[in-house]
Every structure is written in C-alpha cells, then in structure tokens.
Amino acid sequence: MIQDARIVAGFTGAGISTESGIPDFRSPGSPWMQNKPISFDLFVRDAKARREAWRRKFAMDDLYRDARPSQGHLAFASLVASGRMPAVITQNIDGLHQQSGLSEGQIIELHGNGTYARCLACGRRHELDWVRYHFERNGEPPECMACGGVLKSATISFGQAMPEEPMRRARKLAASCDLFLVAGSSLAVYPAAAFPAFAKDSGARLVIVNREPTPLDELADLVIHAEIGAVFSKFVS
C-alpha cells in the first residue's frame, strides 16, 4: 500500500519512541505518573510551580537521556528520503525524529519539543544545559537572557494553545496525501488525533500500526496490531 501511494503523510505517537526506551503516559507504573506535567496556567502564575516543573522535567530527561532512534524512526526517515513522504507529523516531544536524520522542515511537531526551552515573552531559544546549570546552581530557573522573561520547555503543556503553524502544516498535508500512515499513536489525544479522520474524509487511505486498538480502527483501510519496529524495519535503508 505504501509503494502505491503518491504522497504519504506520516503520523507518529508515543509508541514509536517506547521502543527507544522512552516511557509513555499510559503504561502501568509509568514514571510520568510520578512526574506529571504541570498545567500551563499554573506554570505561568506560580514561581513555586515553575521550580517543580523544571525539577520534574530534568528528572524525566535523566531517565531517557541515552535514547536513540528506533527502527520505526529510521524507517520514517527513509520514507522521507525517498521523496514519498513530505513530512512526519508527530505528537512526540523527544527529538528522536531529528536524531534519525530529518530536518526541522521535515517534521511537524504538534506538541512542541522538549529538547530546548523558549522564553514565553520574546520567544528566544535557550539550550537545556544552560537552563539546568543555573537551576541546579541557584535553585531557581533562570530568566531569559534577552528580555528577563519566563523560560519554559518548548513543549505544549496542558491548557496551552496549540501552535498555529504546525497545525496549519499538518492539516495541509492531511488534505493533500493519498495515504495517511499512523505509527504508535493511541489516537486518544485531540486535536492531534483528528488529523487521521480528516485525511480519510479528504480521500486518503488510512493505515494504523499500533500495539493496542485505537478509536479509529474501524475507519482505517488497514490496521496492524504489532510492534512498530517489526512492521517498518523493511523500509530502513
């Protein structure tokens, strides 16, 4: 089915990264339950919450700092390199698609990126090593070096508005593809999970590869319940 497609839209969720050793939210005993993300509104208004958010952020980073792209990531990178897949839409924030060889223009990050920070006031990027050094040295997260604003991991937190440009790009790709390929997403988190159905309504075939059933399985043209790497390893070049 992939070989017959003219334009393939890739869509990835946590399942493609669990094979790299990064825990997802829903697994029993997930460390995310001990280090739950703090809501955006609380982060903005409460300095104590910001300190705790950064503590939890660095605790989670330490758990998967050695993670490397899985066979699934490498397969999607190969599909992009072939010219058949213009970009990968991802719900993930771990930066593994970048590590697999994709450029920023070939990745559409719906939930942001957890590998760096941005100032909420001026938008300046700050590297996490610098943020962590000052946080652990002073017990307080540093302010933006440009304007003194609040720094936050460049992810989309609960209660934070979805990023307009990635959402626009994802919708455009979903509307133009003739195959929408989902890998490792439970398709339970909206609005991101609306894109597969939108692509299907726009005339694309829908393929879902995930270990567990999803709410959109009945809509799909093909559903495979299996490990991502095992299914996609043949596409790695």
Rank of each mutant, 00 (worst) to 15 (best):
Met1His: 11
Ile7Trp: 00
Gly10Phe: 01
Phe11Ile: 01
Gly13Asp: 09
Ile16Leu: 12
Ile16Pro: 06
Ser20Gly: 10
Ile22Asn: 08
Pro28Gln: 07
Trp32Lys: 04
Trp32His: 14
Met33Tyr: 01
Lys36Tyr: 02
Pro37Tyr: 03
Ser39His: 09
Glu52Pro: 01
Arg56Tyr: 08
Asp61Asn: 10
Arg68Val: 15
Ser70Gly: 09
His73Glu: 13
Leu74Ala: 12
Phe76Asp: 10
Ala81Met: 04
Ser82Glu: 07
Met85Pro: 11
Ile89Thr: 12
Thr90Val: 05
Gln91Met: 09
Gln91Gly: 08
Ile93Lys: 00
Gly95Asn: 11
Leu96Pro: 10
His97Arg: 07
Leu102Gly: 11
Gly105Gln: 13
Asn113Asp: 15
Thr115Cys: 10
Leu120Cys: 05
Ala121Pro: 00
Cys122Trp: 05
Gly123Val: 02
His134Ile: 03
Arg137Tyr: 00
Pro141Asp: 05
Pro142Met: 02
Pro142Ala: 04
Gly148Lys: 09
Leu151Ala: 06
Leu151His: 08
Ile156Leu: 05
Phe158Asp: 02
Met162Phe: 13
Glu165Tyr: 01
Arg168Thr: 06
Arg169Ala: 14
Ala175Tyr: 02
Ala183Gly: 11
Ser185Ala: 14
Ser186Phe: 06
Val189Cys: 04
Tyr190Phe: 15
Phe195Leu: 15
Phe198Lys: 14
Asp201Pro: 00
Pro215Glu: 04
Pro215Val: 03
Leu216Tyr: 12
Leu219Ser: 13
Ala226Arg: 13
Gly229Val: 07
Val231Cys: 13
Phe232Cys: 08
Phe235Arg: 04
Val236Asp: 07
Ser237Lys: 14
